Simulated assay, not measured.
Amino acid sequence: MAVDIVHLQHDNLLYEYGLHTQRLQPWAVLNAPFESSWALAMPRTRSTLHSHHEHEIFIAVRGSAVIECDGDETPFAAGDVAFFQPGKRHRLLNDGDQEFMFYSVWWDEEMSERFLAQNRAKTQA
Results as ranks from 00 to 15, higher is better:
3 V>K: 12
4 D>I: 02
6 V>G: 01
6 V>W: 00
6 V>K: 13
7 H>M: 09
8 L>F: 15
8 L>Y: 15
9 Q>P: 00
11 D>C: 03
12 N>F: 07
12 N>L: 08
15 Y>L: 14
16 E>R: 13
18 G>Y: 04
20 H>V: 00
22 Q>N: 09
23 R>S: 04
25 Q>F: 13
26 P>R: 10
26 P>A: 12
29 V>T: 15
30 L>C: 14
31 N>P: 01
31 N>E: 09
31 N>V: 04
32 A>H: 11
34 F>M: 06
35 E>K: 09
37 S>Q: 15
37 S>H: 12
39 A>M: 08
40 L>S: 08
41 A>Y: 04
43 P>H: 10
43 P>A: 13
43 P>W: 10
43 P>L: 13
44 R>K: 15
46 R>V: 15
48 T>N: 11
48 T>A: 14
51 S>Q: 11
52 H>W: 09
53 H>S: 13
55 H>L: 06
56 E>G: 08
56 E>W: 01
58 F>E: 00
59 I>Q: 09
60 A>F: 06
61 V>K: 13
65 A>C: 14
67 I>P: 02
67 I>L: 15
67 I>H: 05
68 E>M: 05
68 E>L: 05
73 E>K: 06
73 E>W: 00
74 T>N: 03
74 T>A: 08
74 T>F: 07
76 F>L: 08
78 A>R: 07
80 D>Q: 09
81 V>N: 05
81 V>I: 13
82 A>H: 14
83 F>Y: 15
83 F>H: 15
85 Q>N: 11
85 Q>W: 07
86 P>L: 07
87 G>T: 03
91 R>C: 01
91 R>S: 00
92 L>H: 00
93 L>E: 01
94 N>I: 00
100 F>S: 07
101 M>N: 01
103 Y>D: 03
103 Y>M: 13
103 Y>P: 01
103 Y>Q: 04
104 S>K: 05
106 W>I: 03
107 W>Y: 13
113 E>W: 02
115 F>Q: 04
115 F>H: 13
120 R>A: 07
123 T>I: 06
123 T>S: 04
